[in-house]
Write a protein that binds this DNA or RNA. Structure first.
Lengths: 117, 117
DNA sequence: CCAACCTTGACACGGCAGTGATAAGGTTGG
DNA sequence: CCAACCTTATCACTGCCGTGTCAAGGTTGG
């Protein structure tokens, strides 16, 4: 075989084997399988896993966020409906307690990182 | 005052008063306040609340999804990074167990609705 | 053949989302 | 003035997210 097994890929990418299976279940990175069912991670998957990790930490996202972003790209109706709602929402972030509306999206992550109280 | 109080708005829109406060905390619909701090829902807010509910149920979304969509619209760098990753992901949905990668995003909701086992 | 590795499934756990209920206290309209 | 309503804060509960770990069983390379 010309790819890495799950544990090798885990050590290479910094994810845990458990998370690699989880990421696959989320439909974000699905490696090929050998005849016996072993996952085989090729250069493409390894690359995608590395950049995915970067993406998540850099922007403080969850796997669901990425899955949702894909839905937005693939479901025109969804994208249109969401944009329509957002467009009709002149939400004045200035009137909200500064940083409150945004922190809602990131609060859990910030807590996880020990940034927020 | 020329708007509805929170309980009136709740009955009008179908949300519970509790959820109206929660939606506000999520930064999605923030009504004006009277001098004493009472929330006053005007026609705009009522409209937004109604369509928001439609949006969520129609497409099976969470409040976080909408918050994330707004981040995507407002943070160019984020949008670019996400799109770059998705673009570099020729994820073959055809090879995944049919409906599996998508159901991941919607599984919880379907379970909630008693659709999935 | 066998140690080392893989697979799926399940239990566990802390944390957050969504939601209701309840308490303590301020506001309002008739 | 007072019943009815509002506010924030808090406790509680279900269910999912992210993760680790362990069990039972199949695969592989030397």
């Amino acid at each position: 075989m010309d790819g890495l097994t799950i544990n090798e890929a885990a050590q290479t990418t910094g994810w845990s084997a458990r998370m690699l299976r989880y990421v696959e279940q989320a439909g974000l990175v699905s490696p090929e399988r050998t005849g016996a069912g072993y996952r085989i991670y090729g250069p493409g998957e390894l690359q995608r896993l590395a950049t995915l990790k970067e993406l998540l930490t850099r922007h403080d996202l969850s796997l669901s966020d990425i899955a949702f972003a894909r839905r937005l790209e693939q479901d025109e109706r969804l994208a249109a409906d969401v944009q329509a709602w957002l467009a009709a929402t002149p939400e004045r972030p200035a009137e909200v307690a500064p940083g409150d509306w945004l922190s809602f999206e990131q609060l859990r992550h910030q807590r996880l990182l020990g940034i927020a109280p």
